[in-house]
Simulated assay, not measured.
Amino acid sequence: MNQRLTPGTTALLTIPPLLWAGNAVVGRMLQGTVPPVTLNFLRWLIAGLLLLPIAGWVLQARSGLWQQWRRFALLGLLGVGCYNTLQYMALKTSTPLNVTLVGASSPVWMLAIGALFFGRRPSRRQYFGAVLSIAGVLVVLSRGHWDVLLQVRLVPGDVYMLLATAAWAWYSWLLIRPGDPPRIRGDWAAFLLAQIAFGLGWSALFSGFEWGLTPATVQWGWPLAAALAFVALGPAILAYRCWGLGVQRVGPSLAAFFSNLTPLFAALMSAAFLGEWPHAYHAIGFLLIVGGIVASSRH
């Protein structure tokens, strides 16, 4: 695992935040159209069907998947079953500002879980990079006015996002642990489909509780179909592929700093949809976030 960034690795770790920002925007737009837990299930069901023709062999008895079912069941729970389910639930009850603020704690969770459970002690540069990168996120979210942050109030959605961020950090550390069958690890589509196979079971279980305990309804139509196509192809398949490669190259601690680009991209997307041009604080926030990435990656 090489801790130094290359242009290729930088691109791999930048694509997921861009797609995740779009995922957050779409998830917010779909509130009232489809229940959040059901949205996550449909998203991964479509992604699994798309991967089946090229990676369906992983579900066979001789693939090695079923001998490692406990590991893939855990990966499927954290990455497929929990993370986006909790995020979509957070977008239902929490403001975008609060959700993004809580999500910006990802580097802290990565460093803490790595130190507590995986024996990876953070360096001073990583601590400094975490502070610098989160400061950049706060500049963007506050629009350059720090008094905006004082108005933040926690709601249940913030707790959901906090749990989602912790689940993602744990998932990212598990990605670099050895033990996967070489044939599966060497095929990105098979590796993702193996997680989806178990994650769909978790998602179906959670969705069943949603329909049994809440007045859930779905408004079928072309807007929902287009949104599902995007979240299945982009934030699911493409983002997970790029994130997995990036984490394997530089490790979860450094990769976590790139996740802080998500609120920056979300701010730019919101500005574009509203017809507003980027402001000076966007540039300041971007420089701070990139500075955190550079500081944490240097030896």
Rank of each mutant, 00 (worst) to 15 (best):
V148Y: 11
I113D: 02
G64H: 07
G136H: 06
F72I: 07
F286S: 07
M89A: 15
L45V: 13
I15E: 05
L116I: 11
A271E: 09
G199V: 06
Q219W: 06
A295W: 06
A164V: 10
L175S: 00
S142P: 07
T165S: 09
Q3I: 14
F258E: 02
H299R: 15
A164N: 08
L192N: 01
F286D: 05
I134C: 09
A115V: 10
H299S: 15
T214Y: 09
P107T: 09
Q195K: 05
S207L: 00
Q195E: 11
S207T: 13
Y281L: 03
L162K: 02
M269P: 06
I284R: 07
P17H: 05
L42M: 14
F117T: 07
A104C: 07
I15F: 06
D147R: 10
Q126I: 12
L74Y: 05
L200I: 12
A194D: 06
P35T: 12
A227D: 03
V139T: 08
A239T: 05
P223A: 11
L65S: 06
P107E: 05
D158Y: 10
L132A: 13
L45F: 10
P263F: 04
A194Q: 08
G157V: 09
H145K: 13
G48Q: 04
W146R: 09
I54W: 15
G8A: 10
F117G: 03
T214K: 11
R71F: 11
L49D: 13
L163F: 14
Q87K: 11
S259N: 14
P181G: 11
Y281T: 08
M269R: 01
S133V: 03
V108P: 02
L200W: 02
A21V: 04
Y171S: 04
V108Y: 03
R28P: 04
L274C: 10
A255D: 02
R249D: 08
L163Y: 06
L18G: 01
L5H: 12
R177P: 02
L78H: 02
Q195S: 11
D147S: 15
L141P: 01
R153S: 14
A169V: 03
I289P: 00
A227N: 08
Q248L: 14
L132C: 15
N84H: 12
L224Q: 08
F265L: 04
I15H: 03
Y160K: 08
T262F: 02
M161E: 09
R4Q: 15
L261H: 02
A197C: 14
L101A: 05
